[in-house]
Design a binder for these strands. Structure first.
Lengths: 285, 285
DNA sequence: CCATCTTTGTGCACGCGTTCACAAAGGCAT
DNA sequence: ATGCCTTTGTGAACGCGTGCACAAAGATGG
């Protein structure tokens, strides 16, 4: 799962919890696989295993959709595929545009999973004039100038942003102004949008950082803690949360000094981390 | 945030909530941007706005890390960058391997955001012999046979899987067997891993489906509901949840018939949805 | 040194999501 | 038909995450 989410204010639409909606595609994929193997029915236990979730959770999720399923037997695969598809809105065709045909945009344009789920790439759009006209994934790359026209003519309501971060907000605004109300953002920026517009964000860099966090935990923190100890005056074990007991003791001054010391040390080796804020996750710098 | 997550059992590591960990990279990015503009300090309000979150949430998140920040002033940007980096484990270098150099793998290999965050691509690996040796993003593509050697020699503990779904589980097992304990999975499959191994999943298709769900809600469900009404015997308004009052009335038979009818209708138009289970999210079919 | 003003850090309450555990429901065999 | 066995659907309890609101802390100006 791509990660961070910047979607709607956590309100549930028509009784279906957001968390459940996020899992429906998972179930749908597992069911599709079963369908291809011509499996007629499946129990909550089996399907849950295939989708990688708890069976109780799965049953509760389905209960929000209605009472599909037969006690003592399980769920009819084809029937469930249809119901979930309908609930997700995949029974209709969704034209989408991809803006920013760099390395990632190129990969997205070639992604085969679109069509099979009711998504259709209406157009590829890029700001670079030299890229315009190039056939990519069977479609000519159009110039940004045509953005509004393309959106309106194709009734596009879903846009994918794969531009550098610097261009993302502007592209976003133009998309919204032209009528797009759902945006999938690959640029490493926080997009601000008016109410009524959904934004979901995918950021590889964030996923990797979360993995690194857990990895650090697993590989024993000792070595690193020891190394950091020299610079960090807080001491290694105390860091969890400042002791409640350090009331108003004259600890303020030393703590301040420690911060300053670390700051200085940090300043010395700053310059390593280049600006990565300008390229979307999964694009060459 | 992209989505579905299949990570650890929701237990918090050493007191830092998982939700907080997931936001730290967000703060870090915002802080890095401020740092580049040489902004010395920032208030929780400003930083929260830049990161796209609530200021109370941000302060609470930081409180798990310790008492950095000065009341009446705000947070020292450089100092906070260092603290968060350290907490996330980004002060050390993480060698990663990318397995599956298709369209997506190629894009990932060229991603510039790796190095700036302490990640280093140790090797690119692909199963296709004809791809082996090709220089991609400055690195030669190695054959899958060398996987174990590469992992061990480079002490790789983080692996990225960008292969077709069919190969993902096997690759995963080989990675784990060779010593990898964190996996970022782009293949549309549920990976089963032993305890102690973290898996995070990024799936574009799922993100789009979630957007489609909300989009369907926004664009009024009426038309679609009316269309489905013909086939769905439940009736349009009743679907929220089966009425409690339909106790043991002879409604079972009609309901069953309705399901069968829909099933037949579904069967008729099945064949549209191609198998998408074989390619990772963001790869050409 | 004191008053004032800003901003942090957090106690508390609320709501969503998860999980357990079980009664109800249906199939199937006798 | 009747009883047994399997599996669903859900009521209820619990725990995590979020947001409010405020007291404590510190800076700043007089």
């Amino acid at each position: 799962m791509a990660t961070g989410r910047t979607h709607r204010p956590a309100s549930r639409s028509r009784g279906i919890p957001e968390a459940t909606v996020a899992r429906l595609p998972l179930y749908l994929r597992a069911l599709t696989a079963l369908s291809e193997r011509s499996v007629p029915t499946v129990s909550s236990e089996e399907l849950a295993a295939a989708a990688g979730v708890n069976s109780a959770k799965l049953r509760k999720d389905f209960s929000y959709l209605g009472s599909y399923g037969t006690r003592g037997v399980g769920y009819d695969v084809e029937y469930l595929v249809y119901q979930i598809s309908r609930e997700l809105g995949l029974t209709q065709d969704w034209p989408v545009v991809i803006v920013g045909i760099g390395n990632l945009g190129h990969a997205l344009a070639n992604y085969g999973g679109f069509a099979s789920r009711g998504f259709r790439v209406a157009a590829l759009i890029d700001a670079d004039p030299s890229a315009t006209g190039k056939i990519t994934a069977g479609l000519p790359v159009r110039h940004t100038d045509e953005l509004e026209t393309i959106i309106r003519e194709n009734q596009v309501s879903i846009g994918v942003i794969a531009t550098p971060a610097g261009a993302a907000q502007e592209v976003c605004e133009r998309l919204v102004a032209a009528g797009v109300t759902s945006i999938l953002n690959f640029a490493p920026t926080v997009l601000s949008v008016p109410d009524g517009v959904d934004v979901r964000k995918v950021d590889l860099s964030i996923e990797l950082q979360i993995l690194a966090f857990h990895e650090q935990r697993k590989s024993g923190e000792e070595a690193l803690a020891a190394a950091a100890e020299a610079a960090d005056a807080d001491g290694p074990g105390t860091r969890g949360k400042p002791e409640k007991s350090q009331k108003a003791t004259p600890l303020a001054a030393p703590a301040k000094a420690a911060k300053a010391a670390v700051k200085a040390a940090v300043a010395r080796k700053t310059g390593r981390s280049g600006p990565d804020g300008e390229v979307p996750a999964v694009m060459p710098a």
